[in-house]
Design a protein around this nucleic acid. Structure first.
Lengths: 321, 321
DNA sequence: TCATGATCTGTAAAGGTTTTCAAGCACCAG
DNA sequence: CTGGTGCTTGAAAACCTTTACAGATCATGA
């Protein structure tokens, strides 16, 4: 049913080898033959079977991409970026959603491993040792996580935090809360660390609450505790949590930014759509996807790329009360 | 480098055939041999190369999934559903984002075709004839589109619209606007048709505006035109457009639902997070993904499944002014 | 003891492609 | 006319599995 290289060969009156060459190394075959073969291949709608090709070349033209939760709009943006760049490079992408289950991650990767030239692991919660073992089996690029000896794409968290804190300090805030994300998350540890450093530098008093699930509900659940701390501003682990805070504040009649300023992290598309629009530290998402694919395709091992961040000032932050 | 069936065979002192059998048809090999082989395979971390297997069995264990825009939260939800069910059935999924480009769709599918057992086409904008041609080449299931002779999963749009309109009529609305989506979209045509039918039945005066891009910006761009129509309620093509309306209304100081009620379609996660929360017709998303995968895996041709819809009444609709 | 059958295992072919190697051919210089 | 060179092509092997077929072993019943 499917048209194979033999069909083309027969139709063109040449051998399979010539067909392959006409399509992938056009310069080595006689122009006349080449044109005829190409024409016939196109006419028959022939596309090489990539699985068969992969078997012999060792390169499948496929990439694997693991994300923890497509429900968080941060990740679809990354997927979009990966997807776009992979497509440009004529690669297809396998997607797997681990549903925030670290235990499932390694297994999923190993199952994919044979079918791909490499995998992009997005914010994996996996233990470092396991991650390292995995990276030894399959070419791996980490997105938004960094461990020694493995390629990664991250963002300048420290600089992002600095922008955020400077913004708050300039608005007169002296005591702010941080709503922490999952303890096992590298991103959370990194943000926390950056925030502590910057807060100390800028003499900002920090109140840490959490840890919450990195979702809307997490923000809702911690909002009242934040209010009880009598801070004038709150920085959330990510935008989804910030939106949860916003939601609960609105329900309780707490004015934003009048009574309290709210600052997020990620800059998901949503952040600009709500009222008040969320001030947030924008992380490169599609670009991270692009960079990750580039690293993988160029087979660059142990390469680190750190992309810039940008504070997006919107309506949810204002002068301290 | 990768461990193949031969490695296992050698280590176990048996032939490759026995290894295959020990793993996929355990009942036909001697218990003792079977256990030994299985143990060694596990120890070596052997996983059959699915590409090679696919070559001979004709089944790859892969599914293709095409979506128009991951930036619209409606689609990640579907992807999540597909992904989850596919994984249960031990299938991997190829994801492709066409970026709302109908021309790219067919090409993408054809490139994937050889590597998958079937494709899930989500809301394709492709012309019906082309879609039909494609379905003849690859087992195909349409998600949120219906054409004769091709399996599909859709939702009860008509019933959803009836719920929505009844809700508005009960609140005293007599004249409402509909913001239409892309003209080429089947979903838009379907919603439009349902709405017209229901509006006539319930004596609701309908003002049609649009067509807008099915995104936040689309809603923003048409909001003022909607206000100029002096309607007391507006139904948007989808939630993203509704959020755009909400945004622009808030910016202009138009009270929702005080001055105008807003009703969406889809029930994306976002809808419940904004203020006022969006009243919307919930479409099954993850379930649609599940159903689609089931149809594909069971190889059911020309099967139609229509899932129920549910009006979610939230804060954005209220009594007519 | 022999034939029969059941149970278990190995050999070889197949699937679609790429690549290595060698062969065929035309052309040129000697 | 001969040997060499360069271009173009085909045959065959290889990639990793699965499966049809046949062979081997063993026990059973006659």
């Amino acid at each position: 049913m499917a048209v194979t290289i033999k069909d083309v060969a027969r139709a063109a009156g040449v051998s399979a080898a010539t067909v392959t060459r006409a399509l992938s190394k056009p310069e080595v075959v006689h122009p006349e033959t080449r044109d005829r073969v190409q024409q016939i291949a196109a006419g028959l709608g022939y596309h090489p079977n990539r699985a068969a090709r992969g078997l012999i070349t060792g390169r499948t033209g496929n990439l694997g991409l693991l994300v923890p939760d497509l429900g968080n709009p941060f990740f679809p943006s990354i997927v979009k970026g990966v997807q776009a760049r992979a497509h440009e490079a004529d690669h297809a992408v396998f997607l797997a959603d681990t549903d925030e289950d670290p235990a499932a991650e390694a297994g999923l990767v190993r199952k994919l491993a044979k079918q791909v030239d490499g995998v992009l692991l997005c914010s994996p919660r996996m233990a470092e040792a396991e991650l390292r073992a995995l990276a030894a089996e399959v070419p791996t690029v980490l997105l938004y996580r960094r461990i020694p000896g493995v390629s990664s794409v991250t963002a300048e968290f420290l600089d992002g935090m600095r922008q955020a804190v400077s913004h708050l300090v300039a608005l007169g805030h002296r005591r702010v809360a941080y709503v922490a994300g999952p303890r096992s998350s590298w991103a959370n540890r990194e943000r926390m660390r950056s925030l502590r450093t910057v807060a100390k530098q800028q003499k900002l008093e920090l109140v840490e609450t959490g840890n919450v699930v990195p979702q809307f509900e997490g923000g809702v659940s911690v909002a009242d505790r934040v209010l009880a701390e009598r801070v004038t501003a709150v920085i959330a682990y990510n935008d989804l949590v910030a939106l949860g805070l916003l939601h609960r504040f609105a329900a309780r009649g707490v004015a934003v930014p009048g009574d309290i300023s709210v600052l997020g992290f990620d800059d998901i598309p949503l952040a600009a759509m709500v009222h008040p629009a969320l001030t947030t530290v924008a992380l490169p998402k599609e670009q991270a996807g692009h960079a990750g694919v580039d690293l993988l395709i160029k087979q660059q091992q142990r390469e680190r790329r750190e992309l810039p961040t940008q504070l997006m000032v919107r309506g949810s932050t204002g002068p301290a009360r």
